[in-house]
């Protein structure tokens, strides 16, 4: 076995030049698609995630509708060309799990009870994957929902933290995700002060877990600021 690569140097600088608490550059392009009711291209480092929302609209098949609220239908997919090695286009167990995890993270903010018997479709296409795609997906979905004019209790902001070279690090990149000791994606709703998605795999002490949670919330707050700016400026800026 080869020696494990050092991912954080003595000065606390990571392989991509960031400090341990820095996020990757984030770019938000609202209304990226012409036909969806709401859409966004969300870029975070090398992640390129396209989210689109349709509806609320009539439910087909009819028996899937609920009498007291709208149903959410979430599809998270990774493009075959989004990863180093080609991903088979067939849905993987990971994608099925993440579609559910993302739906659960959004259900409690969308005011579904206002539109009984309808469906809101949320499509998340990962065009290029570079770690943290599920939380970037929830971040993007919240933007697309707001862009579609779908009423919400708050905006979900996601970020992953992890443990790399024994340190708690914010917003892991691909190599840190693969070689690091732990990965903890979270989604936070700053205006409610609540968590709507929390997962962790890897190894952490309980002290490290506490530190990771507080760093994750700080990171999500930074993401939230960018989401708010994007939503406000899209409508203030008028392009001719």
């Amino acid at each position: 076995m080869s020696l494990k690569k050092q991912l954080i140097n003595e000065q606390g600088i990571r392989t991509d030049g960031r400090g341990i608490d820095d996020l990757r550059p984030i770019k938000i392009t609202l209304g990226y698609l012409a036909h969806a009711n709401g859409s966004v291209l969300y870029e975070q480092g090398k992640n390129k995630i396209l989210a689109a929302v349709f509806g609320p609209s009539e439910v087909h098949p009819k028996h899937a509708e609920l009498p007291d609220r709208a149903i959410l239908r979430v599809r998270y997919r990774m493009a075959p060309f989004s990863t180093e090695e080609r991903k088979s286009p067939a849905p993987t167990r990971r994608e099925i799990e993440l579609s559910m995890v993302i739906r659960n993270a959004l259900e409690s903010v969308v005011l579904t009870e206002l539109f009984p018997r309808t469906a809101i479709d949320i499509f998340i296409e990962v065009l290029q994957a570079d770690a943290g795609t599920r939380v970037a997906g929830v971040t993007a979905a919240a933007l697309a929902l707001a862009d579609a004019g779908i009423p919400m209790k708050g905006i979900t902001a996601g970020c992953a933290v992890g443990k790399v070279d024994g340190k708690i690090v914010c917003d892991l990149n691909d190599i840190e995700d693969k070689e690091g000791e732990a990965d903890m994606p979270i989604v936070y709703i700053p205006t409610l002060g609540k968590i709507s998605l929390l997962q962790m795999d890897g190894l952490m002490t309980q002290e490290e877990f506490k530190q990771a949670l507080s760093k994750a919330i700080n990171s999500a707050m930074k993401v939230y600021q960018l989401q708010v700016n994007a939503l406000k400026t899209k409508y203030i800026k008028v392009e001719r």
Partner: peptide
């Protein structure tokens, strides 16, 4: 006593302090 996996399931919300 290390933590090796965490999962929040279903749709509700949790306050960080309670976690």
């Amino acid at each position: 006593g290390n933590i090796c996996a965490v999962m929040k399931n279903e749709q509700g919300l949790i306050a960080p302090a309670q976690v």
